[in-house]
């Protein structure tokens, strides 16, 4: 008995110490991940004059919320948020509509040239966005879309990746439903609208979240195509705020927190779909 017990005892001691090391490392990593956010919040709640006169570890109590009031006077934050939300929502709905329609056609409908066309789609997914910046700027310029939100919308309402994702999902959709719908006289659009879409909510949510987050966080493309202050998105506004008030850390941190908050709240609300979207981002690269 004791012979039998000993190895399993030492095993469990080993397992426990391995676990302890694992937890320690994970805790250390998690602190590294979270501290920048916490420190930004702490900084944003200090009075501007206390930033340099006190040590970094000092926390002002009671907190001073004036940076969160001031920022609305320094930049038209509400306008930027409205611009961003408008573009993000249009792109999300547009991308979901065009990608799901095209994905359905590639997965389920037969038409000449379908597979060749799909191959072109896959090939375009490999083109790095950087190569497209310059020619797309020229296309937008010729369309008269520079310095309008159309420049952000037009190039994003369709997506090769979204189509690929929807196609893969629709391929696994049971064909009995489709046959039954056909017998009932459903045309492809009725089937898509009444049966396919209502049964694809998880994948639509994931793709929609990716589109929304991409537009919300996008920086380089808006920087290139937008000039007017009144057209700016949140990220652009924040970046310009930084070049104007580059030592006003309470203000800048308040700005960072405000622009981060919507996405972080969305993340906590639908974490499952975010995690799913991370896995797809891997595919996209």
């Amino acid at each position: 008995m004791s012979n039998k017990n000993n190895p399993s005892n030492s095993d469990s001691v080993l397992a426990k110490s391995v676990q302890a090391i694992a937890v320690t490392l994970l805790v250390f990593g998690a602190i590294t991940m979270i501290v920048p956010f916490i420190w930004s919040v702490i900084t944003s709640l200090k009075s501007a004059e206390n930033i340099f006169s006190h040590s970094a570890f000092w926390i002002q109590f009671p907190p001073d919320f004036s940076a969160y009031k001031q920022i609305w006077e320094r930049i038209p934050l509400l306008l930027y948020a409205g611009n961003t939300l408008k573009v993000a929502l249009i792109v999300t709905v547009g991308q979901l509509a065009t990608s799901s329609l095209a994905g359905y056609a590639f997965a389920r409908l037969k038409f000449p040239g379908r597979d060749k066309l799909f191959f072109v789609y896959i090939a375009t997914m490999m083109i790095p966005g950087m190569v497209l910046l310059i020619p797309n700027f020229v296309v937008m310029r010729n369309l008269g879309a520079i310095n309008t939100h159309w420049a952000l919308i037009l190039s994003a309402v369709g997506s090769a990746f979204g189509t690929f994702l929807m196609r893969q999902f629709f391929l696994s959709f049971p064909s009995e439903l489709e046959d039954a719908a056909k017998l009932d006289g459903c045309n492809p659009f009725m089937f898509y609208w009444h049966i396919l879409l209502p049964n694809s909510k998880p994948i639509l949510t994931t793709l929609g979240l990716m589109a929304f987050q991409n537009i919300w966080n996008d920086f380089q493309w808006p920087l290139i195509v937008l000039n007017d202050e009144s057209k700016r998105t949140l990220q652009l506004g924040l970046s310009y705020l930084m070049s104007e008030y580059y030592t006003d850390w309470t203000l800048l941190m308040a700005g960072a927190i405000i622009t981060l908050l919507p996405i972080i709240l969305l993340f906590f609300a639908v974490q499952k779909y975010f995690v799913q979207s991370f896995k797809f981002t891997g595919l996209k690269g």
């Binding site: 329609l101 409908l109 497209l132 310059i134 296309v139 369709g158």
Partner: peptide
């Protein structure tokens, strides 16, 4: 069925055509 197919891919395809496919060749020319 083919008509439905072409109809369904058209909106997405136009975006890919004008903002990915053609721009690559355009960039090469530029």
């Amino acid at each position: 069925e083919a008509i439905w197919g072409y109809l369904f891919i058209t909106p997405n395809f136009l975006v890919i055509l004008f903002f990915t496919f053609i721009p690559v060749f355009f960039a090469l020319y530029m």
